[in-house]
């Protein structure tokens, strides 16, 4: 464990809690892509299966349970409690355009052709593209609530910190997880455009509205 990974996990947890707080306080999930949240729940469900038969550390166990719980609560809020505020018309990204390539790639590029590894690989590739429906929705509506931009900022920051963690682990323990690293780079690249808007607009107190 290193500081980049701890900060990354905390940034991820903060993002998830910001999203829940936004929905809880405003009693609305306007501007939130339910499809992205479904993909994140799928990422956690396929990656954290080892929760039941591999014990890594108490921290690892607790964080996995928190992520799983929060992601399902988020989905329950969007499609259950606050479904009247979910703007389905703007959440139109075709998930099959993500799931089919990700499943295909998981079968092609993996460390071992066994169910747990295929599921882990699927979850890594899926996480890289899971935010696309959300970014697509913002481009559809042309703007996003400020609290939503903070959610996206910490969500993007988490994997960027993981990149630093992998550099650190490579130099200190010759750790090199090629699938996670390449996928993490792609995932972070998808946020670059948003990061630019966030830093040049939101941090200057303006609302995030796309030109």
């Amino acid at each position: 464990m290193n500081v980049f990974r701890i900060l990354g996990d905390l940034s991820h947890l903060l993002a998830i809690l910001i999203l829940l707080a936004k929905m809880w306080r405003s009693k609305s999930c306007a501007g939130i892509s339910g499809k992205s949240q479904v993909l994140f729940a799928l990422v956690f469900s396929t990656r954290y299966l080892d929760l039941f038969f591999v014990f890594i550390s108490l921290y690892n166990l607790v964080m996995k349970v928190i992520y799983l719980l929060c992601s399902y609560i988020t989905i329950y809020m969007i499609y259950g409690k606050l479904r009247k505020t979910y703007d389905r018309e703007n959440d139109t990204f075709r998930l099959e355009f993500l799931l089919i390539p990700v499943i295909g790639l998981s079968f092609l590029e993996n460390y071992d052709f066994i169910p747990t590894e295929l599921l882990w690989t699927f979850s890594i590739y899926l996480e890289a593209v899971a935010i696309l429906p959300q970014l697509f929705m913002i481009s559809n509506t042309g703007e996003a609530e400020t609290i939503t931009t903070h959610y996206l900022f910490f969500l993007g920051l988490y994997r960027a910190l993981y990149l630093a963690n992998w550099i650190w682990r490579y130099h200190t323990e010759k750790f090199y997880d090629q699938i996670a690293i390449i996928s993490g780079v792609v995932q972070t690249i998808f946020y670059c455009d948003f990061f630019y808007l966030y830093i040049t607009k939101v941090l200057k107190g303006k609302k995030l509205s796309l030109p």
Binding site: D50, V54, I114, Y176, D177, A180
Partner: peptide, 10 residues
């Protein structure tokens, strides 16, 4: 490369 089933990161 980490072997199968040895993924210690979240």
């Amino acid at each position: 490369e980490p072997g199968a089933g040895k993924h210690d990161e979240l």
